[in-house]
Design a protein around this nucleic acid. Structure first.
Lengths: 188, 188
DNA sequence: GGGTCTAGCCTAGTCACCCTAGGTAAAAAA
DNA sequence: TTTTTTACCTAGGGTGACTAGGCTAGACCC
């Protein structure tokens, strides 16, 4: 009997790819086992349970996204950085809908604190340095930015914009313009 | 054998309440049947399948939210209307997390077109009349508004803001100020 | 090289949920 | 009252999550 060579890492990666193809809600332990030509029970040697698997995918996605954002941000500042960040975020979400969906499950505090979500938050704040916002405006602005990005991408995916003919790419570009405008002139 | 008096409407309402209590992902046909003191198979006389049930909850939520927004909006205009709309939206989402989650499932085009989501969109446009935006800016602004609201509420719920001490209520208020500012001075 | 240990698979079985088929009793209609 | 329809039932199949316990290939040790 040859071994399948399953590891938690390979399982996580396969789950992430499966999620992008068939949707996160359809990623089951059983389906994953089938892909590896292994019985579902065998996977519990590598992962604790189905939730653990999803958390692993979420952490993978957070790391990948943080990496992309980081390289998109390199050498940029101001609106340039804002747009680069936003596009990296949206592109990742659209290219990897399953991974993005996984990112939305809420991690318990310790896990979240140890995740790449922290890097993400730091980079967001870095962008705002170009806009010279003091606390607590900075926190409010970070929250608004993140809300706008997540909200747009999320609505785009679930078809919230489908009924209007206007190009979503154009709306996205104008939304970033608007965001840059408020950040440049944050109301007192 | 007394009848339980189950109807699709009562099922939908019970499912919505159950969703708010235990989370939409835990609302199962079996659990719902238990609440009515009935076997799970019996529910299929009233609903087509589990997905149908979720769609019904989504439509219920969309209608309830549209009603709330409509009454919040009555007699208001400009920033006043914006804030009223936004607060009605956020309050509903926070009071009814399960219903709000149900709203996020993507409806097929015909169902969506017949839903209260349409009223929602109309009301959003009505708010923008106070800001005198022409197309396609209006559509872009509608999308940005909706993205901001949905994103904020969604991140608030999944704990995306938890790691910063700043009050989310305050951030929300400032986000609305910022939104009002850009809408008043939409970049060309 | 032989013995041991353990990682990595297995089978078997439980339980929950979704859903279908076909039966039966209560309520409504004729 | 008889008939029809409505609202429930039992029985059973399929899938998925997960546990307990068994077997084996290969690493490690003497």
């Amino acid at each position: 009997m040859a071994r399948a060579g399953v590891t938690a890492e390979r399982l996580t990666l396969a789950a992430a790819e499966l999620a992008d193809e068939i949707g996160m809600e359809n990623v089951t332990v059983a389906a994953l086992a089938r892909q590896f030509g292994v019985k579902d029970a065998s996977l519990y040697f590598h992962i604790r349970n189905a939730h653990d698997l999803r958390v692993r995918v979420a952490l993978l996605a957070l790391t990948e996204l943080a990496d992309r954002v980081a390289s998109a941000l390199a050498g940029r500042a101001g609106k340039d950085a804002l747009v680069a960040f936003a596009n990296a975020y949206r592109t990742y979400a659209n290219e990897h809908p399953g991974r993005y969906a996984a990112m939305q499950i809420d991690l318990d505090p310790e896990t979240a604190a140890a995740s790449a979500g922290v890097r993400h938050a730091e980079m967001t704040r870095a962008i705002l340095r170009g806009y010279r916002l003091a606390e607590p405006d900075q926190t409010d602005a970070v929250r608004m930015m993140h809300s706008t990005f997540h909200g747009f991408v999320s609505l785009e995916k679930t078809g919230g914009f489908r009924h209007t003919p206007r190009s979503t790419d154009d709306s996205w570009a104008r939304t970033l313009d608007a965001l840059d405008a408020v950040l440049s002139n944050w109301p007192a």
